[in-house]
Design a protein around this nucleic acid. Structure first.
Lengths: 194, 194
DNA sequence: GACTGCATGTAACCGGTTACATGATTCG
DNA sequence: CGAATCATGTAACCGGTTACATGCAGTC
């Protein structure tokens, strides 16, 4: 799925600026399973405007560059919905340098192994907080995209967020339960060899 | 982490052909958290050979193109280890078209939602079988990379594989427990609206 | 007869990242 | 006083994917 489609999806939850769209992928609703950087979002939005799938209203701001608040056109909405129906979703892909590196735990100093595990846990802990199912406490002006026009939580979002949460919890639990075991075994091996 | 480094890592478990390396990322040890396609592996291997980080022996085969069996040089090994020590691992990224699509469950026919969930579950189930911690039953000629020269399971690999397994299990469990709930809620909403 | 697995390789293409440019404000 | 947040935009670059080329063996 290219950034254009992703942007259309982001705008399904209501109007937003390019900057806010990035936040949805960085912090918000979509952060666990899609990414997109500003360098790709802005051109995508421009292209979508040319194709008539989105429109924007320019809001002047003092001491700040003008805000472009984007919105789906009815054709944009239709196009996105059609895409949903027609797209064969690509395979999921999870990339993790840390896990790749940990595969070689034997070959590196134990302190590094521990540091890597801790960093892994810390990062996931952070994400975990961001998805917190009842992230209702966020300031109202933040486009969360998880609610529809009536302010109701979209069931699809709940489901997906819940799934993300379940994954993270399992990850963190596994680390809590197995980190020490790994470190101990590595230590044992080292003393055996020397 | 670029494909070159990934290839070096793949060869840490012993010699392998380009084709076998791809399998490690497709099916094997690394399949859950890194990917690499043949189109990137072969050029990477060529480059690594030029740089003296790997060598290969050509094995003639009948009725088949020659096999190039690659192996780390001692410099390759050193380089890889240095990379492990020096690299700041990039952020983990999980991309899932299916989860993105499911976010918009409200907007699509219930059958599609169900089909997507089922496909998601099926794919994860498949991966789950591939990582099966005691995947000892695989034919011996398959380079698994999970064992060291003495045939012992590398503790790092165990840990990472276990983590992958824990994630998958949590995912599948969540789906079992919440799929029907989501579908029911979607149905309820539809009848409410009409 | 078609497809999959083994086995290597090349090259066009494309998409996204990174980095730069600009600039005020607020927080630590 | 520097860093981060808000806010947009451009362009070079790069890395990897996709598709093509080749060919035999075994399976469905």
């Amino acid at each position: 799925m290219d950034v254009r489609t992703l942007c259309l999806g982001a705008l399904m939850g209501g109007e937003a600026t390019g900057y806010e769209i990035r936040k949805m992928f960085e912090d918000g609703t979509f952060s666990h399973f899609q990414i997109a950087s500003l360098g790709s979002i802005y051109p995508a939005l421009t292209k979508l405007t040319q194709d008539g799938l989105v429109t924007f209203v320019e809001h002047e701001q003092e001491n700040r560059p003008d805000k472009k608040i984007y919105q789906l056109t009815s054709e944009g909405r239709r196009t996105f919905l059609r895409t949903l129906l027609q797209t064969r979703p690509a395979e999921d892909r999870y990339r993790s340098d840390i896990l790749f590196m940990l595969t070689f735990a034997e070959e590196m100093p134990i302190e590094l192994t521990e540091a890597l595990i801790d960093e892994f846990a810390a990062r996931h802990e952070l994400m975990s907080q961001q998805i917190d199912p009842e992230n209702t406490d966020k300031p109202a002006h933040q486009k969360s995209n998880a609610r529809d026009e009536n302010g109701e939580l979209r069931p699809g979002c709940c489901f997906v967020a819940g799934l993300g949460q379940a994954m993270r919890n399992a990850t963190l639990k596994f680390i809590r339960e197995n980190k020490q075991g790994l470190l101990d075994e590595l230590k044992a091996r080292k003393t055996n060899k020397s």
